[in-house]
Design a protein around this nucleic acid. Sequence first.
DNA 1: TTGTAGGCGTTATCAT
DNA 2: ATGATAACGCCTACAA
Lengths: 339, 339
Amino acid sequence: MLHQTITIKDIARELNISVSTVSRALRDTFDVSLETKQLVLEKAKELNYKPNFNARGLSQGKTNNIGIILPFITNYYFSTVITGIQKIAYDFNYNIILYLTNDSEEREKLIMSNLTLSGLDGILISTCASNYDHVHEVIGKGIPVVFFDRTNPLEASKVRQDDYNGAFEATSHLISQGFSKIAHITGPQDQIFTQNRLNGYLNALEHYGIPIRSEWIVHTGFSQECGSTDLQSLMSHCKKPDAIFAVNDRKAIGAMVQLKKENIRIGQDFGVVGFTNDPICTLITPTLTTVSESAFEIGRIACELLLKHIQKVNLPSKEVILPGELIIRESSMRTTLVD
Amino acid sequence: MLHQTITIKDIARELNISVSTVSRALRDTFDVSLETKQLVLEKAKELNYKPNFNARGLSQGKTNNIGIILPFITNYYFSTVITGIQKIAYDFNYNIILYLTNDSEEREKLIMSNLTLSGLDGILISTCASNYDHVHEVIGKGIPVVFFDRTNPLEASKVRQDDYNGAFEATSHLISQGFSKIAHITGPQDQIFTQNRLNGYLNALEHYGIPIRSEWIVHTGFSQECGSTDLQSLMSHCKKPDAIFAVNDRKAIGAMVQLKKENIRIGQDFGVVGFTNDPICTLITPTLTTVSESAFEIGRIACELLLKHIQKVNLPSKEVILPGELIIRESSMRTTLVD
DNA sequence: TTGTAGGCGTTATCAT
DNA sequence: ATGATAACGCCTACAA
C-alpha cells in the first residue's frame, strides 16, 4: 500500500475478535451486541480508522460517487446548480465527480463512453447532445440518471425550470411596455430548453396578435459574444426590431454592449430581457430585466431525486419543473431613469 | 453486482486464456505476445470492457481520483481554476472530486478529517484555514497535496499569483493618477494571499512617501456586500479616502455600488482598483481597473504538479508564482469620459 | 510467453 | 452473538 492505513483487521486484532464482527459493529447491524459495538467504535476512533471505499465498493457494487456531466462551470447558473448538488451529496456522504463537456456533443459522448461506470452510483447530466444513444446506453446498464436544466426525451427523471412560461411572461412584458417588434436571440435549435423558450416567445406574440417574423429569430451560441453579433446582424436588416428577448442573460448582455456601441438607448428606445437572473443583471447599466431561475434548488432537487433512484431501483421517474419569476428592471422600462 | 459488467474473466473465458494474461495485455506490459495482445484488445472492444476502478484501486492502492478542496465555485476565479484543473485531469485520465468548504475553516477541517483518503491519489486545495494540522496530517500520510491561490506555510508545492507585486502596481497606479488618500479593503488577516496584497499596498505607499493610516485598512469578508459596507464605514470617518484598492473585484464592485449611491463620481473623484479581472470588470460602469490573475493557468499548473507528485514520491516541492498584470480601465482614471 | 495462486479491504453466507 | 470463508475485479509474485 502506498499510504499505510488502518483496516478492520487492525481493529479485530487489537480487540481479539473477528473481522466480520468488526464489520458488523461498524455498520451497526442488528446482530451484534451493544457491548462489542461500543468497543469496536471506540477502538476505531482511537486508531482513526477510515473505511476503504474501494473495497466497500468492490464488495457491495456501490461507490458513493455520483457524476455530474455539464457544459461549463464558469457561469452563475451552473456553478450555483453544482453548489446545490454538492450540499445534498455532502450531507448524504456522497462524492461528486465533475465532468465538463465544454458544450461539445462529441466530448459529452466521449466522456460517457469512457466513464468507468463501476465507479459511479448515478449520474446528473445537463446534456448538450441532440441524440441520446449514449445516455440511453448508460440507463440501460441500470445506472440511475437524472437530467437537469437541459433535458431530453428519454424516460428518466428530470429537473428543470419552467422555460416556456418564463419566456411567455418575458415576451408579454415587453409587449406590455409598448414594444412590438420583438426579436429573439437564442441557442442551437436542437436543445429542448431552447425550444421551450422559443415557444413561449412565439405563443406570447400570437396571444397578443403580433405577427411573427422568422428573420427576427436568431439561432447561434450561448455566449456574450454571440449576443453582440446577433444584435449586429438584426440591426443590419431593413426591418429592425425594437426589443430583444434573449435566451439567457449572457446573450442579453452581449446585445446590450452592442446597443451601447450603436448609441441606442436601452429601455427607452429598445427593450431587453434576459433569462437566468445572473447577479450581473443588477450591476450592469441599465439593470437587466430577466426571468429568475432557481439554480441552487434545481441542483438540490436533482441530487435528492438521484439519491432516491440509487436507493430504490425502478423508482418511477418524474419530472420536476420549477417556476421562474419575471424580474423587471430598467432594460425593459420605457420610463426608466438611467443615471 | 448491481450493474452487470464485463470483467477480464469474461475476456479470458472467451479467449480460453488466463485472466493474468488478459490483465497484462490490457495494461500493455512487456511480457505478452503481440498476438495475444491484439486478440485481447479486440475482444475487449467487442465486449465493451471497462476496467473496474474499485478493483484496480484496491489492488494497486491508487484510484485515479484527485480531490479539489476550495471555498466556493460560484465566482469567476475559482470556476476558471477548476476548468484548468479539469482539462489536465481529463487528459491524464484522472477524475476530480469536488469539496466545497464555503469558506468555513471548521467545514474544511471536517471535510479533510472525513476524507476517505483511500479514495484519493492526491489533493488540490485552496485553504481558508489559519492553522494547518489537518493538512499536515494528510501530507504525513503520504498523500501528495498541492496548494493553489490560498497557500500556507507548510512544506508542499504551491501555485499562486504574484499577489504582492500585483498589489504594489495597483496602488502605485492609483498614486500616479493623483490619488493620495488610498484605503485598502480586504479579507481576513490570517490569509497569506491577503497579507501579500496588503504588503504590496503598504510598500507602495511607503515607496511614494505616503503616510499609512491604519483606519483606512479594513478587514472584513470577501463578498460584494462587504465591499459596500466597508466603503460606507470608511466614508463615515472624519478623514475620508479618495481611492480604494480592493482585495478582489467583488469587493471593488461592492464599493462602486455604494459610491454610486452616495453620488461620488468614480474615476474623476474617487479611484477604484480591484484584483482578479473578473469579466464583469468590463461590463460595469465605469469599467473597473484591476490586476489580472491567470486562473486557468493556475489550475492547469497546479494539476500538472500534483500529477508529478503522485507519480514520483518525494519529488521536491516547489512554488510557482504567476505574474499578474495591471489592467487600467475607467474606474481609476481621472480623465475618464463616462457615458 | 503464459498460468496459478494469493492478496488488496470489505461484505455476505454460512456455520457455530 | 460471533467466527470462518468465499466472494467482489484486478494485479503481481512465482512457477511452469
